[in-house]
Design a protein around this nucleic acid. Structure first.
Lengths: 165, 165
DNA sequence: GACAACACTTGTGGTTTGCAACTATTGTAT
DNA sequence: ATACAATAGTTGCAAACCACAAGTGTTGTC
């Protein structure tokens, strides 16, 4: 725990800025992926496959923290698009080896080029001495949030009322 | 433009950390809103109404950068839930005055309490001297991305191929 | 008074997601 | 070795979220 309570104004600023950043990230992501002919979810999956190389569906689902059913369908789409290969594993016929096809690899490179160019320009537009600080801050924030999530206890106001549905 | 090109490794780190943060923000948001009986989109809208107070649908759509049709339906849901009031404006019967109902105000306060508590704990878990730096970094990043978006020119690899659909 | 512009709604379709229930395969225990 | 449990993935269903196109009123303008 820190030594001093953060002032309310600071808390509000954090909320607001995270919300802004969230929106901007979503926008840039949809820009970058849509132009490469894949949707955002497909893009995330492609990049994850590139990084892990030949994984099973369950592993990918765990890595992306998505339901296996969701991933199954996304893989379907990418297989249909010819970007991803899917084959039953040799030693375990339950599992599937999911990997990038040659076309998929090309596409991932294309996505990487686009994203790298964008974020490179972005960093370039920032004062040089602030770049590392920004990376540092992002990493600290994400890590703290991750710990909180695992630790649970994000209880809420006692308003268990649900929408009429 | 900055004076030096950012190294590729730094670019990749930025990408990765923004992706991580994006996911964490989404998680925390769904935690905080679902427990208060509203969805994420409804929550964003409620907070926006609270901030602007009595706005028209078009103004809200512009502020949230959403299509008016999307917002119209979200307002429908919130009106049905009794959180938002909707009335034709006096001087202009095309426009609608959208505001928080008493219940909606309560709910917003509840959301604010939950979020404030969460982000307060979050800040508290960070070393005190890094807090302002983190806020600074978030704001710089969001601003840079916003400028890029407006400025356009986020061209992509020339891969105009679209999915089979 | 005709017509364009505005503000919003409705119809439609697509993406993303999760839960529950199912099939098929593998491991385990009796 | 057969019965049962655990694993891996798929499919049916439902919901949230979003945008484009087309529609309905309303207001301003010529």
């Amino acid at each position: 725990m820190g030594s001093t309570m953060p002032p309310p104004a600071q808390v509000r600023r954090l909320r607001r800025r995270l919300a802004e950043l969230e929106r901007e990230v979503a926008f840039s992501l949809s820009d970058q992926t849509s132009c490469c002919g894949v949707t955002a979810a497909q893009c995330h999956l492609l990049l994850e496959i590139e990084e892990r190389g030949q994984s099973s569906l369950g592993e990918l689902a765990a890595a992306l923290e998505l339901d296996p059913s969701t991933l199954s369908r996304t893989v379907d789409a990418l297989v249909a698009a010819g970007l991803v290969s899917r084959a039953v594993e040799a030693g375990n016929r339950r599992r599937q080896a999911i990997g990038l096809s040659p076309t998929g690899l090309e596409r991932v490179e294309c996505i990487n080029d686009t994203c790298d160019a964008y974020y490179s320009r972005l960093l370039d537009s920032m004062p040089e001495e602030k770049r590392e600080a920004a990376l540092d801050a992002l990493s600290i924030l994400a890590e703290a949030m991750r710990l909180f999530r695992k630790g649970g206890g994000n209880s809420c106001c006692e308003n268990p009322q649900r929408r009429p549905s």
